[in-house]
Design a protein around this nucleic acid. Structure first.
Lengths: 231, 231
DNA sequence: TTTTGGATGTCGTAC
DNA sequence: GTACGACGTCCAAAA
């Protein structure tokens, strides 16, 4: 990994055109050829970048560029899309290279898949007496997260999200429409389960007769890992 | 901006939990207090990060951490959400600070707003004889991108997207439902216009009687900027 | 290889 | 401040 601090301009041409006026920025050149341009604010997202696979070529600045002070010029081109990034350097302030090796990678827990797995093991969170038919129940328009059997008759389709948005309600609505046509399953009702449900999503769901359930990941995690309580 | 290359572990606790095992990484500390953790691959997205507003505190490593080789420990805490990042440093390989100043920011062109503007000027792309009623036609649930008048009677609502996804079809469906109730506009038909339309979106749109139109940005740009061709 | 859907999405903007 | 849609979304798993 090469780290460069430089006064530079950057131009991107590809899915859109973007220009960065002359200023001092951090340029990160990664081992896979990718390039990041960062300013001293706005975490996370680079101002400009090029994703691998791409190649960096050091070009000779054009005469008029050199006249206005460009001392070095990089062209980074994406191998497939042809998108390219032109970095024109006016002043090199820092330049160092470092051997990092391969990263063992990030280990996560608490994402949608975890929620779904926990909820499948704890269907009582949805309601009394329900039983799991299966996770990822397949339909023509995609898998339903959880399908439950109601002992009083009928089926419950559960859509699990980390954050419950209007899109999730739409998705569940499509599933309900389709599943409701199946005489083996009908009547099918819907449950929208998420750690956090947006007000508009709640309104839309309620309007469509879909019940909303707010999930507590930490609590569900506790029930899973902890020994059953003694009372 | 402070740049640190270090052998470290990183743990994030917040919306989820995430752990990075011991390895050499780039740590970027920005002027606004935010922190980025990057490996030597996977451009764009940091392995781990903390967004502003947040504060960094250098803690004394616990005895057992010090025993396994932790020489320095940072805790970065988000001011509002309480999310936190724990960086345990085992070896400092590089450490430098740089004054970057404020970035003038990115200038873009060629996004959805351009597509919509161009299409408003070239409604013949949608169909013969149509005329523009207005852009951003207001409704109770948000503005319709383009509203067109059909000389044969009725109205056409156009949803413009750069990439046509199933969400866009849902959005347009909601508009059509609402607009169709207005006797001044009815009958209202829909057109889904995008540079690229996903197969599932096309299927859903067609199923709902919505016509799909694929837009060619470069061609539309050419018609706008170029002189009319001489034949 | 293309497609699909999640994401600690992030980021801007209208309300 | 909240809600909502765009994003050069990025990214990984599935088909």
């Amino acid at each position: 990994m090469r780290l460069v601090i430089a006064r530079c301009t950057v131009d991107y041409t590809g899915r859109l055109n973007a220009h960065l006026a002359l200023a001092t920025r951090l340029l990160v050149l990664k081992a896979d050829g990718s390039v990041l341009v960062h300013s001293d604010a706005l975490s996370y997202k680079p101002l400009n970048w090029m994703s691998p696979p791409c190649s960096l070529v050091v070009e000779e600045p054009e005469a008029d560029a050199a006249d206005v002070g460009v001392i070095e010029q990089w062209r980074v081109t994406h191998a497939k899309s042809g998108d390219s990034l032109l970095v024109q350097i006016y002043e090199l302030i820092h330049d160092s290279s470092h051997e990092l090796g391969i990263d063992p990678g990030l280990v996560k827990s608490g994402v949608e898949a975890d929620l779904q797995r926990l909820l499948a093991e704890q269907v009582e969170v949805i309601g009394e007496g329900l039983s799991l038919v299966r996770r990822e129940f397949p339909t023509a328009i995609g898998p339903v997260d959880l399908l439950l059997r109601n002992p009083d008759g009928g089926t419950i389709a559960v859509e699990v999200k980390r954050r419950g948005d209007i899109d999730g309600v739409e998705q569940l609505t499509r599933y309900l429409e389709l599943l409701g046509r199946d005489p083996h399953l009908a009547p099918v009702t819907g449950v929208f389960a998420a750690q956090e449900i947006k007000p508009q999503a709640k309104v839309l769901a309620t309007d469509r007769g879909i019940r909303c359930v707010t999930l507590d990941y930490e609590e569900m995690k506790g029930i899973e890992s902890g020994a059953p309580r003694l009372f």
